[in-house]
Design a protein around this nucleic acid. Structure first.
Lengths: 165, 165
DNA sequence: GCATTGAGTTCAGCAACTGAACTCTGTAGC
DNA sequence: GCTACAGAGTTCAGTTGCTGAACTCAATGC
């Protein structure tokens, strides 16, 4: 992880990945969401090294994705909770989990989700305006207000203005 | 990247992350989707080291997420394309990009998407059954057919059967 | 008192990533 | 026929990041 460096990319995907773009961080967030929210429980659940977990939790708190809820002082003990931005990541992690169910677990889901509507959850990413599912074929990209030909999107800018894709 | 080891987790999220759980891979997939699909173009666009890109492309092809389309033999030149499983990742990457727009780019999108319906894209993850948006509050998790108390979900299994979350 | 729990810190050894230089095959220009 | 260039890599030394095990420290339980 080159921690910092992706943040400067003119690309929100890179900026997202700067915080959650490693193998452990999404798993940590999933654990916190599922209620495995204390340091030792996360270590036990994931088998992550303690040094790395210390590092990642501090990063996630610093970046406003997790909060610490103190449940005892002296010695300080905290439970990690999701902030608003952290909660908004959950559906995305669920979508990625279900992609894994389909393509990497042979269709056998190790974990199943139920939606409040009562149905076993099948998630899909859809367009907020028309409600229909988003597929790679139904999308067009173009540079937005924050765009520029900076590292991370150097060639993309050319491509898009040339009208490809 | 500990390449291999996450694949054994009884967790589809971990298995997904085993392939795309690093900082570069999602950016490579986004580039290919946007038409930046040859080796040198990706290097120029991302500034990724050539050795690492070689490695990642080979992994993605091996795992069936990218395909190679030969556009010249001798010397062999290929264009990378998304397979079905790769295409299914695109909406998820878009959702993550828009999360980054909201939380990490101060609302200024470097890249904007238009949906086929004509609207500027606002993506959301929704329930396939009822169509309403999925939020972290509207979900319940429970162990599925492929579940067991294996590394990656050791403690989660306990938590869920105890009825937490 | 002594063991246990929870949340870390420290550190040596190893694996992964970076950056720069180099290779190899073929095309284009003159 | 020679030189320059492009495209897709490979090689490698140096650095950064991760792992695993052992250790610390405060408090509680027995």
């Amino acid at each position: 992880m080159s921690r910092r460096r992706f943040a400067e990319f003119a690309c929100s995907l890179a900026r997202s990945l700067d915080v959650i773009g490693d193998t452990w961080t999404p798993l940590i967030l999933r654990d916190v969401f599922l209620g495995v929210d204390t340091f030792n429980d996360i270590v036990r659940d994931l088998g992550i090294s303690r040094a790395l977990l210390t590092d990642r939790l501090a990063l996630l708190v610093r970046e406003g994705i997790l909060d610490e809820a103190e449940y005892r002082e002296r010695p300080r003990r905290v439970r990690y909770t999701l902030t608003d931005s952290g909660r908004e990541l959950v559906p995305i992690l669920v979508a990625l989990t279900q992609w894994g169910d389909r393509w990497r677990s042979g269709g056998e889901a190790p974990l199943e989700f139920t939606h409040d509507c009562g149905a076993p959850l099948e998630s899909r990413v859809s367009c907020d305006a028309c409600g229909s599912p988003i597929t790679s074929e139904s999308l067009t990209a173009r540079p937005g207000p924050g765009g520029r030909a900076a590292p991370g999107t150097a060639v993309i800018a050319e491509h898009l203005s040339r009208g490809r894709t």
